[in-house]
Design a binder for these strands. Structure first.
Length: 104
DNA sequence: TCCATGACATCAA
DNA sequence: ATTGATGCCATGG
C-alpha cells in the first residue's frame, strides 16, 4: 500500500537524521544518498518539516547544500549555536567545518 | 493521467 | 551573492 511505502521513507530518513553526531550538520542530498535515494532530497525536507510530528529528532542539524537553514524557522540558528556549531550568518552554517563526515 | 508544489541539487551567467 | 533554468521524484488534487 502507498501508506507503507511512505512510512518506509520516513523511517529511513529519520534513522539517518538520528545518527547525525552533535556538533555536525548534514545536507538533504547527503541524507537522501545515505538512504539510497539521492534524487529524493526534497522528500527528506518534506519529512523533516513534519519530523516534530513523528518524534523528537535533531532536524535542526539538517541544512541544504549551501548551508542555509530552513526558511521560516529562525530558532534553528539558536539551536545550532547551542550545539556549538559556528554560524556564518543567522541563516547559514559553516559546512566547511561542520558537515557530517563518516569517514576520516 | 495531468498538473502544481516543495525545509533540494547542479550548472550557467 | 543572486537569478534562471533543468533535473528529480513523492504527494495531493
Amino acid at each position: 500500500m502507498k501508506r507503507v511505502l511512505e512510512e518506509n521513507l520516513i523511517y529511513e530518513i529519520l534513522s539517518v537524521v538520528e545518527e547525525i553526531p552533535k556538533g555536525s550538520v548534514a545536507t538533504y542530498g547527503q541524507i537522501a544518498r545515505l538512504i539510497g535515494r539521492d534524487k529524493n532530497a526534497r522528500l527528506v525536507g518534506k519529512v523533516l518539516s513534519m519530523a516534530e510530528y513523528y518524534g523528537e529528532y535533531p532536524c535542526h542539524r539538517v541544512v541544504n547544500h549551501a548551508g542555509r537553514l530552513a526558511p521560516g524557522w529562525i530558532e534553528q540558528g539558536d539551536l545550532l549555536r547551542n550545539e556549538g556549531i559556528p554560524l556564518k550568518d543567522e541563516t547559514h552554517v559553516d559546512l566547511k567545518k561542520c558537515q557530517w563526515q563518516f569517514c576520516l
